[in-house]
Simulated scan of single mutants.
Amino acid sequence: MLASRTKRQRMLYAVGASLAAVGLMAGCSAETGASNTEPTNASVEGNSATGDTITIGFSGPAADHGWLGAINSAALAEAKKYPDVDLKVAEGTNDANLQISQVEGFINDKVDAIVLLPTDGAALTEVALQAMAAGIPVINVDREFSSTFAARVTILGDNYGMGVSAGSFVCDQVGDNPNAIVAEIAGIDSLPLTQDRSKGFSDALKDCGLVVSNRVAADFTVQGGEASTSQLLAAAPKIDALWNHDDDQGIGVLAAIDAAGRDEFIMVGGAGSANAMREIQNPASVMKATVIYPSTQAADGIRLARLLVQGKAMSDLVEVEIPSRIVLNAPVVTSDNVDRFLPTAFES
């Protein structure tokens, strides 16, 4: 009875998250009760119609990570789709002070909107507030500001949902063994996103009576993933399931697993790299799944900034205003659906 109930709970969570993500995509919509067929600012045709040219400033961290590189390239590609968008791109940086000065430059240039993936959400909050006070809407991507007043729109991946998705998959695979040993390789423990992922994972495992038995933290790099995994494998002579938070560091994780000659467990990745998905396609690999953390967030931010400044709305919603907060879904990729996700996956 408990297994059936908790499985239904996980299904409801996944369906609810999927519905939230669907609202982000511009698909077909019907103007319920409309008396004419003219395009409006809340229709697909109205959304895509060329409007007044707007200038969008975009700033993000340095692309020193496969996922971050994909974030930046997707944003640039999205802007090129629109002849009415002039995109000003600041050089990627991991220096919060430099990024603050970049945003100040956008404010001085009187851009129409700013899409900002902050290297540190708290550190960039004050300058984002300044932009908002100057009448420039800010679209906050991935790492949240510490004030809700610092952004008109916040668009996020679902870090807690990633953990839930990973934990639910582990439960489905080994949950019938009450003594299953579950291991976890986190990212940087001081980051809220890592804490959220770990909490979601732990909460989902509780549904099938499991806990994390062995845990280490890495640093989102290949080298860190390999070193931390070697440490974990030495401490845990037997593992049934392992979740690695990040597919970029997962290259090192897999290298350590191969070097140790371990293959008695299943592995779940995180973020959704092409490398991980090719591993999933290999029946001999321990890698059986990965959880998507969308690399489209800044591209979505560009699209939303355009709609916002041009006074348009999202065509899949009845609401005539752009939402203030959007959280994207965290689906699980397995051998059953990998062909759907691989073509748009990023390379680590």
Rank of each mutant, 00 (worst) to 15 (best):
L2I: 05
L2D: 06
R5E: 15
R8K: 07
R8H: 08
M11C: 13
V15A: 05
G23Y: 07
G27F: 03
S29W: 05
E31N: 10
G33T: 08
A34M: 12
A34Q: 08
S35E: 06
T40R: 07
V44A: 08
V44Y: 14
G46R: 05
G46K: 06
G60D: 04
G60K: 03
A63W: 04
A74V: 05
A75T: 02
L76D: 14
K80D: 10
D84W: 12
D84Y: 02
K88P: 04
T93Q: 09
E104P: 07
G105F: 00
N108G: 13
D109P: 03
K110N: 14
D112A: 01
I114C: 08
G121M: 03
A122Q: 04
E126T: 13
E126F: 11
L129D: 01
Q130T: 06
A133F: 03
P137T: 12
I139M: 02
N140S: 09
L156Y: 12
G157V: 15
M162I: 15
M162A: 11
G163I: 10
V164A: 03
S165Y: 06
D172P: 11
I181E: 03
V182F: 08
A186M: 14
I188R: 06
I188V: 01
S190G: 14
D196G: 00
R197Y: 08
K206G: 10
C208S: 12
L210F: 06
V212R: 10
V216Q: 09
A217V: 04
T221Q: 07
T221N: 12
T221K: 11
V222M: 01
G224D: 02
G225K: 08
S228P: 00
A234I: 01
K238D: 12
K238P: 02
L242V: 10
W243R: 13
I251N: 10
L254G: 12
L254V: 12
I257Q: 11
D258Y: 03
A260S: 04
V268T: 07
G270L: 12
G272T: 06
P283W: 05
T290K: 07
P294T: 14
A299I: 03
L304A: 13
L308C: 07
Q310R: 15
G311V: 15
K312A: 10
D316I: 10
D316S: 14
V318P: 11
V318D: 12
V318E: 12
L328E: 01
N329R: 05
P331E: 04
N337P: 08
N337M: 08
V338H: 00
